[in-house]
């Protein structure tokens, strides 16, 4: 479903004055976060930003470490653009956009040392905890990276590490050793540029008019830990620096919402 040329022209010409849904340029739609929504997952969260909805489940399992990092656990982020979420999504192996989304979310978590993989070692070289973060888009109305990033960190914050049975297997009867150690709260903020105007939290309609999109993930300390530019337009140094500031400000606000919503 591609956007009508007339709609695109309308949005592009008017974006400097007003947005299609009346929001301010730096205003995010209403965010709602619920954690602990799935019984079988060790951690889970549902995030809604306006009509966009993402579910994340965290599964914790025992596995063997990679040969080059025998003392480190494994963190994996994967995403599925389910065909139910949007007419453009098709079943099959992950496409470019889905791979990009999970890799950008992954970098935010990994580079901020949110999950210290050294803490996930059980027996060096033999047994480590493997943490799988699976992102599922349930409704696509734009700004998927931000929604997925918030859902991923909320799910990790709510996640528990199971006990290990005497025979060395994972206890699946709901007995837990404790919470998964989570050290930071990385929050990605994507800024779209339409006709030189910057907007935060673009809807699907707005995304189809975007020249370029820049996602910057910030940590609790306000530092940058991951960035990604997309779109076939150039951006200037000034624009990028400005986006860095927008990401800090919005990241802080969103981090407060996450902290408030996560049930420990």
């Amino acid at each position: 479903m591609t956007i009508l040329q007339q709609n695109k022209q309308y949005i592009t010409e008017n974006i400097a004055k007003s947005r299609d849904d009346g929001r301010k340029h730096d205003q995010t739609r209403e965010i709602s976060i619920e954690t602990g929504i799935l019984g079988k997952a060790e951690g889970s969260a549902r995030v809604q930003i306006g009509k966009t909805e993402v579910i994340v489940g965290v599964k914790v399992d025992i596995g063997t470490p990679f040969p080059d990092t025998p003392k480190s656990g494994v963190l994996m982020v994967n995403s599925e653009f389910s065909a139910l979420a949007s007419p453009e999504f098709e079943n099959g192996p992950p496409r470019e956009d889905s791979i990009e989304l999970s890799r950008v979310v992954d970098r935010g978590i990994r580079e901020s040392n949110t999950i210290a993989v050294e803490d996930l070692c059980i027996e060096p070289g033999e047994k480590v905890w493997m943490v799988f973060v699976d992102i599922n888009i349930t409704n696509h109305d734009g700004n998927l990276i931000d929604a997925a990033g918030m859902a991923a960190i909320a799910a990790l914050m709510s996640a528990k590490v199971p006990k290990i049975n005497e025979d060395g297997t994972v206890n699946r009867d709901g007995e837990y050793k404790g919470s998964l150690p989570v050290k930071d709260i990385p929050v990605p903020v994507s800024v779209g540029i339409i006709n030189s105007t910057m907007i935060v939290d673009a809807t699907k309609l707005e995304e189809q008019c975007i020249d370029s999109r820049i996602t910057i993930t910030t940590t609790k300390a306000g530092n940058y830990c991951a960035m990604q530019q997309a779109g076939s337009h150039e951006t200037t140094e000034e624009q990028i620096l400005k986006i860095g500031e927008i990401a800090q400000k919005n990241g802080k606000e969103r981090r407060l919402i996450i902290e408030k919503s996560v049930k420990k």
């Binding site: 940058y224 830990c225 960035m227 150039e234 951006t235 200037t236 860095g244």
Partner: peptide, 19 residues
Amino acid sequence: DKNITLLQMDGDFTKEEFK
């Protein structure tokens, strides 16, 4: 114009370092 067409980053930068 020295405009930016690709930007990615992983690690840790303060605002000043980034600039």
